[in-house]
Structure formats: structure tokens, C-alpha cells
């Protein structure tokens, strides 16, 4: 379905080139939901934005992103635009700022349907109300006629999800869909995403490991622009091999709230050798000298660590 080969995404900045995504390789199969986990600023949103190509014009992107046999990075902007929303859609983070404040909810959803589903405005609006109702939004017709500021945070998140899936795209990128929600609402949102994306491929960007565990088939862990570990959701949650993944899991409230010491490295000048070595409790000499390659541990489980070799 989607194959990312040696993707490098860089931004020029006054302090130098920011390597937001560095040599990422990733495959997402048909009907597979992949979770992309990492702390804030590790480059996971940039990776998602690289796929749908919605980064500022000054961004430098190298590598290949093969979608249904075509390299997205080689498409002209106009060809890419025709794919956006129709084949590949994105559920942006921060629903409060991502919904247009002066347009009605129903119209913002109908817009996508009308654009990609070959129907007129009225049919699109009826359809929009139908999907809102299907997304368990109470009083859907009334909601469709409201403006974003009249909805609660959880409701707005639902609208974002509905909007991202309204045109039934084959590939969805969901960016932090569970961010800033209380636990009850979060559970509902997780259920909604799971139901609405079944039978579709999805890349779910999140720092919420529990949410990823419930929704995704596989999980990839990202750190300082690099992919460190990749395995089935179950393996990542219960048998992680990379020290960073282990640390990340131990920092969860349910696992003892033990933070990883130190802070994320700079993406302009990342540490030499293994990027995690300054914070790694098991760092060895080789970790400081050499940059580890990603290695296959068993079927479907990869890790970038000398300890696992």
C-alpha cells in the first residue's frame, strides 16, 4: 500500500539544517494500522506531512514514498492535490484551530464529500449529517448547522475524524487524535477511530502508547528523527527490545511513571554514534563511536541497537 524508502526531510533554519526525519524506512500494508510513537519534536508529524506533502516550500525532502506503485515525491503539485482528501487524507491535530471558525460544521464536512464523491451540495450535506450520526454524534442535524466554537473539545475531535474519513480515503494519516482529551472522551474517540478505520490503512501519529496499542496492528518508535524500533503492537507493549522503547513504556503512568533521564537531542546536530546513547542506561563504547543500523530480531521485529545484535 505505502512504502517509505530512505526518507529524509530537512528544514533550513537560522542555526543550520534541521533533520526532522532521517533515513526512515517504513511499510504500511493494505488494511494495516500503524502507530508512530515518539516524544514531542521527534519528527513524527513531519513524517506524516511528508507523505501528504503539506510542508512549507522551503522543506527539502529526499527518498521515495511509493503509494500504489507511484512515487508521491515525484508527482506534480496538481497531481498530488488530486490525491489529497480523495485517496490520502489527514486528520490534523488541534481540532480547535483546524476547523474554520466562520464555516458551519456540516459545510466543512460536505465540502470534502462534494469535492471527491461526484454529488451536488445538497446531497453532500445530507451525507455529512449521515456520517455525523454514524459517528455517534447526538443530534447530528443540529450539530451540522453549528459553528466550531459551539462544540466541545471531544465533539470537535469527532468532527475532525469524520471530516478526514468522509471521502472514504484508502489511506489516512491521523495526527494526535487523542491529544488533550479527558479519559472518558479519549476512550470514545479510540473506539470511534477503531470502528471507522477498519478496512483502511492508517498511520496514527501519537505519543499515547495506550491509544496506539488499542487501535494499531503495528507500532514504530521514533526518536530524534530516526526510527528505533518496529514490531507488532503487542510486542512493543509487552516485549520491547530497544532501551528507548523500554524507557518510554516505563514512563507511562500505568507502569510507574519513571521518566527517561535527560532531554531530547537537537535535530540540527544530533549526538554522534547512537542518538540515544547520552540518555541510555546501557550505553557502551561502541554506542558512542558508531551509528547503529536497524536490524531484524525476528519476523516483523526490528530494532536499532547494538545490544540487540
Amino acid at each position: 500500500m505505502l512504502e517509505i524508502i530512505n526518507l529524509k526531510t530537512q528544514f533550513p533554519s537560522p542555526d543550520g539544517l534541521v533533520n526532522a526525519v532521517d533515513s526512515a524506512d517504513l511499510q504500511i500494508e493494505d488494511n494495516e494500522r500503524l502507530g508512530l510513537i515518539g516524544e514531542t519534536g521527534c519528527g513524527k508529524t513531519v513524517l506524516g506531512m511528508s507523505i501528504i506533502r503539506l510542508l512549507p516550500p522551503s522543506t527539502r525532502i529526499h527518498g521515495q514514498i511509493i503509494y500504489k506503485g507511484r512515487d508521491l515525491l515525484n508527482l506534480k503539485e496538481e497531481e498530488m492535490r488530486l490525491l489529497r482528501g480523495k485517496e490520502i487524507s489527514m486528520i490534523l491535530q488541534n481540532p480547535t484551530t483546524s476547523l474554520n471558525p466562520v464555516l458551519k460544521i456540516g459545510d466543512q464536512i460536505a465540502e470534502v464529500i462534494q469535492l471527491h464523491k461526484d454529488c451536488n451540495r445538497k446531497e453532500a450535506k445530507t451525507k455529512a449529517v449521515e456520517i455525523l450520526a454514524a459517528a455517534m454524534i447526538p443530534e447530528a442535524p443540529k450539530r451540522a448547522d453549528q459553528y466550531p466554537h459551539e462544540l466541545s473539545g471531544g465533539m470537535k475531535e469527532r468532527v475532525m475524524i469524520v471530516m478526514g474519513l468522509a471521502s472514504q480515503p484508502s489511506f489516512v494519516i491521523a495526527d494526535e487524535p487523542t491529544k488533550g482529551l479527558d479519559s472518558g472522551t479519549k476512550a470514545e474517540i479510540i473506539r470511534l477511530i477503531r470502528d471507522m478505520t477498519s478496512g483502511r490503512s492508517m498511520l496514527m501519529i501519537t505519543h499515547d502508547l495506550a491509544a496506539a496499542g488499542e487501535i494499531c496492528d503495528r507500532i514504530a518508535v521514533m526518536y530524534a528523527g530516526e526510527l528505533l524500533e518496529m514490531a507488532s503492537a503487542k510486542t512493543i507493549l509487552h516485549d520491547p527490545q530497544h532501551p528507548y522503547t523500554q524507557g518510554f513504556i516505563n514512563s507511562l503512568p500505568s507502569r510507574g511513571l519513571l521518566p527517561i533521564s535527560g532531554s531530547s537531542p537537537s535535530l540540527i546536530d544530533p549526538p554522534h554514534g547512537c542518538r540515544f546513547h547520552p540518555r541510555c542506561p546501557w550505553a557502551m563504547d561502541i554506542c558512542r563511536r558508531e551509528h547503529p543500523q536497524i536490524i531484524k530480531l525476528e519476523k516483523g521485529h526490528f530494532s536499532r541497537c547494538f545490544l540487540c545484535a
Binding site: 490525491l83 489529497r84 483546524s98 476547523l99 474554520n100 470534502v112 469535492l115 471530516m163
Partner: peptide
């Protein structure tokens, strides 16, 4: 952000 959202819709 809503301009970015509009772009992601393919408008």
C-alpha cells in the same frame, strides 16, 4: 491550521 486542513482536503 484551518488553511492547512483545507489543503489536506484537496481543495
Amino acid at each position: 491550521d484551518y488553511i492547512l486542513a483545507a489543503r489536506s482536503k484537496g481543495l
